[in-house]
Amino acid sequence: DVEEQIRRLEEVLKKNQPVTWNGTTYTDPNEIKKVIEELRK
């Protein structure tokens, strides 16, 4: 469920934690926001 994935990513973003997505770890909040934007398409 895309909405659920977006919610999880936004939670991690608020906590300033790194996100691992498709084998890539993102630590930059701007990169995480880009992943969220991609999911919304």
Score class of each variant (00 low, 15 high):
Pro29Leu: 07
Thr27Tyr: 09
Trp21Pro: 11
Thr27Gln: 07
Leu39Lys: 00
Glu4Cys: 14
Val19Pro: 14
Glu38Tyr: 08
Ile32Phe: 07
Gln5Trp: 11
Thr24Ile: 15
Val35Met: 08
Trp21Ile: 15
Arg8Val: 14
Glu38Lys: 07
Arg40His: 04
Glu37Cys: 09
Leu13Arg: 03
Glu11Arg: 04
Asn16Met: 08
Arg40Gly: 03
Glu10Ala: 04
Glu31Arg: 02
Arg7Met: 10
Thr27Ser: 11
Trp21Glu: 09
Ile32Asp: 00
Ile32Leu: 05
Arg8Thr: 11
Ile32Gly: 01
Thr20Gln: 15
Lys14Ser: 12
Arg8Phe: 15
Glu4Val: 10
Pro18Thr: 14
Glu38Arg: 12
Leu13Cys: 05
Asn22Gly: 13
Trp21Gly: 11
Leu39Asn: 00
Leu9Cys: 04
Lys14Val: 11
Asp28Leu: 03
Val19Met: 07
Tyr26Asn: 00
Gly23Val: 00
Ile6Trp: 03
Val35Tyr: 04
Val12Trp: 09
Gln17Leu: 15
Lys41His: 10
Gln5Val: 14
Asn30Met: 12
Arg7Ala: 10
Val2Arg: 07
Lys15Gln: 10
Glu37Gln: 10
Asn16Glu: 06
Ile32Tyr: 01
Lys14Tyr: 10
Asn22Ala: 06
Arg8Gln: 12
Arg7Leu: 06
Gly23Leu: 01
Gly23Ala: 01
Glu10Met: 11
Glu31Gln: 08
Thr24Ser: 08
Lys41Val: 07
Glu11Met: 07
Asp28Cys: 05
Lys34Asp: 05
Ile6Leu: 07
Gln5Lys: 06
Arg40Asp: 01
Trp21Asn: 12
Gly23Pro: 03
Thr25Met: 07
Glu4Trp: 07
Glu11Leu: 05
Ile36Ala: 01
Glu3Ser: 08
Val12Ile: 10
Glu37Asp: 12
Lys34Gly: 09
Thr25Tyr: 14
Lys41Ile: 09
Asp28Ile: 02
Lys14Trp: 07
Glu11Tyr: 02
Lys15Arg: 12
Gln17Cys: 14
Thr20Met: 13
Asn30Gln: 10
Ile36Pro: 00
Ile36Gly: 00
Gly23Thr: 01
Arg7Val: 05
Thr20Ser: 15
Lys41Asn: 11
Asp1Ile: 07
Trp21Ala: 14
Ile6His: 01
Val19Thr: 05
Lys33Gly: 06
Asp28Gln: 05
Asn22Ser: 03
Asp1Met: 13
Thr25Val: 14
Leu9Phe: 11
Val12Leu: 15
Val19Leu: 13
Ile36Val: 04
Lys15Ser: 14
Asn30Ile: 13
Thr20Glu: 15
Val35Thr: 02
Glu11Cys: 09
Gly23Tyr: 01
Glu38Met: 14
Arg8Met: 15
Gln5Ala: 13
Val35Asn: 00
Thr20Gly: 04
Gln5Gly: 04
Trp21Leu: 15
Val12Gly: 15
Lys34Glu: 05
Lys33Gln: 10
Pro18Met: 07
Thr25Asn: 04
Pro18His: 08
Val35Gln: 03
Glu10Cys: 08
Glu38Ser: 12
Gln5Asp: 11
Gln5Met: 13
Leu9Val: 02
Thr20Leu: 13
Trp21Gln: 14
Tyr26Phe: 09
Trp21Arg: 11
Val2Trp: 06
Leu39Gln: 01
Asp1Asn: 13
Glu3Trp: 15
Pro29Phe: 08
Pro18Ser: 13
Lys41Gly: 10
Ile36Leu: 14
Tyr26Arg: 00
